[in-house]
Nucleic acid binder design. Structure first.
Length: 99
DNA sequence: CGGCTGGCGTCGT
DNA sequence: TACGACGCCAGCC
């Protein structure tokens, strides 16, 4: 059970229509300040299509990056019911999922 | 093993 | 509000 495995597991707990942040995900797996590590792990995602890495956004409500392009990530989130305006989540706090 | 990088976060200007 | 500088931690070279 590596760190990345735990991250993916936690991420799978995020339901459709909800999102989480890199920082929160880091804390969820035991890292208080491992936000960047989470980014690296997402990029190295061994289960694309299984792990919803598009539900992970920046703490200020912005989308952040995405392997297949930020526009794609944005559209996926919108399809799940999350409202996005100018690359930022509207009711971010409300859509946020707490572990 | 040492150093650099990156889908970030936070604080200061 | 916007931009730059540091700090953080797991990978990669």
């Amino acid at each position: 059970m590596t760190l990345s495995t735990r991250v993916y597991t936690k991420l799978l707990q995020v339901p459709e229509g909800k999102v989480t942040t890199y920082g929160d995900l880091a804390k969820a797996v035991g890292l208080e300040n491992g936000q960047r590590a989470i980014g690296t792990i997402m990029k190295k995602n061994p289960f694309p299509g299984i792990v919803p890495c598009h539900r992970v956004v920046k703490s200020d409500g912005k989308i952040g990056g995405f392997v297949y392009g930020e526009r794609v990530k944005l559209q996926m989130l919108v399809k799940e019911g999350i409202k996005i305006k100018d690359g930022k989540i509207i009711d971010f706090a409300k859509e946020k999922f707490y572990f």
